[in-house]
Write a protein that binds this DNA or RNA. Structure first.
Lengths: 147, 147
DNA sequence: CAGTATCCTCGAGGATACTG
DNA sequence: CAGTATCCTCGAGGATACTG
């Protein structure tokens, strides 16, 4: 067994470390909930969309909610666990905007619905509230990494 | 062209929407900088590690820094753009801890080096500073999504 | 030690057609 | 409309051997 197993990042990677899964989630966060909406928006093959939606439902990130009967049709809604992925998506989007954005297209800004002001994703100290970058973060209960 | 192209998430997904790339990055954030360290830690095949390191260097997320001459040997360091991925990794780790963690293994806590207190990744409003979840975030300059 | 070169296999991905 | 079923192809992934 290597360090690639059994930690919280690799556990999360099973769910979101996949191009289509991440793009499907982005779509659901954007308000696309139905199969056809997602398929048309993403340009994903239907068998792949079926697969990804099924996986996300299995991981309890999405849940199927019937929106019509006879025939029954489901839409895909974020679960609590799915909504908790919001900071991940925001962090990714923010990084993409800053470092990977095609300069010709405008960045996609997210705002606080009440204030109408931009949101930002940060990592901060729960004690002093300071915004932290990688240099000021270390692993707890671990002899300082000597490797 | 579909919505899958040409936005900041799909731009970022090219870099990190891949299991091994993300795990390599995690390793570098943890202080593993040399080829052999990463290979042994991740259990990744050497050709794949070569490929992923090369891609991350191309994306200017990592850079090669010589640490020895005759023969010259390089180690892989985060660039500014790479360090800026810290919130993404922290957000992913935090989510994995909360929702995907194998209950038998302890979560991997990150702390502020000065305070020794745990860090947290959040999304907040740049104006009122409130911590925001998905329900309070919307896209700017966009008729409110009616779909 | 830090890769490069080769080879093989399996399965992801996509296209297309079909169905309750 | 929301999938399921099939089929095909290509390339990612891994193992192994080799090299400056």
């Amino acid at each position: 067994m290597t360090a690639a197993d059994n930690d919280s990042i690799s556990a999360a990677v099973e769910v979101i470390g996949d191009r289509w899964s991440l793009l499907v989630l982005r779509g659901v966060f954007r308000g696309l909930h139905r199969f056809g909406e997602l398929r048309d928006d993403l340009g994903i093959a239907s068998n792949l969309l079926t697969d990804r939606l099924g996986r996300l439902v299995n991981y309890e990130v999405l849940e199927k909610v019937p929106y019509q009967h006879r025939p029954v049709r489901y839409e895909y809604r974020l679960t609590e666990s799915g909504r908790a992925l919001s900071p991940v998506l925001v962090a990714i989007m923010q990084w993409g905007d800053s470092y990977r954005q095609d300069p010709t297209s405008a960045p996609m800004t997210l705002v606080h619905a009440q204030c109408n002001a931009p949101v930002e994703n940060i990592t901060r100290c729960t004690q002093c509230n300071e915004v932290l970058d990688a240099q000021h973060i270390r692993r707890a209960d671990h002899r300082t990494s000597t490797t």
